[in-house]
Amino acid sequence: MDKFKLEDIKDVHVGHIPAAKKGIVDSLMGKDLLKESVSLEHMSSYKQGHQLGTEIENLLKGYEQD
């Protein structure tokens, strides 16, 4: 597996940072506990954060296998 580089994510734009953070946390926890606290206006940022959390988890799992 290729080594992760900060440059790989530096251009990621999520919009509303607090909502994206909640998405990342929910993704890594495996439960959508914070989703209900995100307004519909910021749901796309939450979803982008959730996707980032999934990608982070997959990267970490890949490093465990190496």
Rank of each mutant, 00 (worst) to 15 (best):
K21I: 15
K21V: 15
K21R: 11
K21Y: 07
K22H: 09
K22A: 10
K22S: 13
G23D: 02
G23A: 04
G23C: 01
G23I: 00
I24C: 07
I24A: 11
I24Q: 07
V25M: 02
V25K: 10
V25L: 01
V25Y: 02
D26I: 00
D26V: 00
D26P: 06
D26R: 00
D26F: 00
S27A: 11
S27Y: 00
S27R: 01
S27H: 01
S27V: 04
L28R: 09
L28S: 03
L28F: 02
M29R: 06
M29L: 14
M29N: 13
G30D: 14
G30T: 02
G30C: 06
G30F: 00
K31T: 08
K31Q: 12
K31Y: 01
D32Q: 07
D32F: 00
D32W: 00
D32M: 05
L33D: 14
L33C: 06
L33Y: 06
L34F: 05
L34R: 10
K35R: 15
K35P: 10
K35S: 06
E36T: 07
E36H: 01
S37T: 14
S37K: 12
S37W: 00
S37L: 02
S37V: 03
S37C: 00
V38C: 03
V38N: 04
V38Y: 02
S39Q: 10
S39R: 08
S39M: 03
S39L: 03
S39V: 01
S39G: 07
S39N: 10
S39I: 01
L40V: 11
L40P: 01
L40S: 11
E41A: 06
E41D: 11
E41K: 09
E41R: 06
E41T: 07
H42A: 10
H42S: 11
H42R: 08
H42D: 14
M43V: 11
M43E: 11
S44R: 08
S45I: 01
S45L: 04
Y46H: 07
K47N: 13
K47A: 15
Q48C: 06
Q48L: 14
Q48A: 15
Q48D: 15
G49R: 04
G49N: 05
G49A: 03
G49Q: 04
G49H: 02
H50K: 14
H50L: 09
H50E: 09
H50P: 08
H50A: 13
Q51Y: 07
L52D: 08
G53Q: 06
G53K: 02
G53V: 02
T54P: 01
T54F: 04
T54M: 14
T54N: 13
T54S: 15
E55A: 08
E55G: 03
E55N: 15
I56E: 04
I56K: 06
I56T: 12
E57I: 02
E57C: 06
E57L: 10
E57K: 09
E57M: 08
E57N: 09
N58A: 14
L59H: 12
L59S: 13
L59N: 12
L60V: 09
L60G: 05
L60C: 11
L60N: 12
K61C: 07
K61I: 10
K61F: 05
K61D: 15
K61L: 14
G62R: 08
Y63T: 15
Y63N: 11
E64N: 12
E64T: 12
E64L: 12
Q65P: 07
Q65H: 08
Q65T: 12
Q65V: 06
